[in-house]
Design a binder for these strands. Sequence first.
DNA 1: CAGTGGTCTAGACCACAAC
DNA 2: TTGTGGTCTAGACCACTGG
Lengths: 247, 247
Amino acid sequence: MTERITKRLRISKQVGTPLYRQLQQQLEDLIVSGTWRPREPLPSETELAARLDISVMTVRQAMGLLVNRGLIYREKGRGTFVAPRPLERSLQRLGSFTEDMRARGREPSAQTLLCEVVPAPAQIAADLGFCPGTPVLHLRRLRLVDGFPVALHDAYVTRTDITHAELNSVGSLYALLEQRGIELDEAREVLEAVVADTTTAELLRIRRGAPLLQVTRITWDRHHVPVESITALCRADMYHYSVTLRR
Amino acid sequence: MTERITKRLRISKQVGTPLYRQLQQQLEDLIVSGTWRPREPLPSETELAARLDISVMTVRQAMGLLVNRGLIYREKGRGTFVAPRPLERSLQRLGSFTEDMRARGREPSAQTLLCEVVPAPAQIAADLGFCPGTPVLHLRRLRLVDGFPVALHDAYVTRTDITHAELNSVGSLYALLEQRGIELDEAREVLEAVVADTTTAELLRIRRGAPLLQVTRITWDRHHVPVESITALCRADMYHYSVTLRR
DNA sequence: CAGTGGTCTAGACCACAAC
DNA sequence: TTGTGGTCTAGACCACTGG
């Protein structure tokens, strides 16, 4: 069973991508596609190394990535196995609203309510490590999924050269930032529960006092320079949030 | 500066703990204690390897752990640097309520409202991958910090040999489980925003309709066997939740 | 016992950054 | 040019699991 599958693996030493990346990607595909069932053993390190004609350490590097993502688990002396998991994606992957929704098979959109350069409010400046009053781009958008409002976003972005028109044409703020050469790397999110005030309730088409999940995110680029601070108010009935923890 | 500090590092090949663990721990101590400032470069891989008389790959293994935890970042061709971070704890570490609160310097306690073996309700059985009706331990506890109620926990535990008395004496359910040889490994949490109903409001001493952060956690041991499913209703004004994401 | 993952070595070549 | 991290090799020994 596993033998037949293993024969499909192909590693090319000519192509530019690292060998361990190629292997990680192919193993991941076999797992998420369900070709390997939960708890089923993967081929051993030595077997993979021999069959693909690469070093054991390289195989270990690929497997290490999959362990980190929670897709496989390893037991000393026994082997490496596919992690049994509910299908739901959890992964602490830094993605935009647009990317998140697409990954769940939904069609996201946005309605831009505000797009202007303003002096940074005190709280935002503190989050971003700036002096209060430094110009930042304030972006207020109603986020929709399949046409229904699910969240209200207030973003403060350090790059101010973004126009309303561009935003509407690209849709995703992150895509726009990456087009400008910014390499997003890491974010910290703080989650809180709040209740809707009147104006938020109207925009999200819920009643006043309805529960909202408030997500405040600060994002840094790969040089650890802050890129944005964003607060999202999400309809509790349409938005859950999942996290994986490890001991 | 860094040179003087580096001389403090000591690795012993005699002691049982792996070399990369020793190094990781010592580097981590230097970072969290603030001896190395944010953005300050660490010694290079080759320098550390030479000075400690270990292999470069071993140094890389130690540094890889610190990168995963977000304590350092690496730039090709430039070096390895201490990550600038707000002091606040983020880390996706699987810990008990008791451990979390102690780590924040608060004193947690619990008031056990219910501790009985019951047939697993359908939703819980599904979470744990059991047949509905399998006996599980239902634990309902009011969690307090510094004497004030902050959360209401409803836990369903697969081990049923836990008594009210034990729980009150140890305090932490996780400590109790680990005493029984269960090796907690991984958990998935789903966060939602809800509003307090009358009975919850009374227990948490808030008004009906106040916002609550609802955290539902399923925990697995190192063999990926489910250990517990727990739902926590947390006072929004006393409980935030933070997460770190990576792209 | 044989097979597995965990740890470790002592090199190598590369792309990149900084001077 | 020098030094850095990124990738990779071809071994090694160990502790653990299972039969």
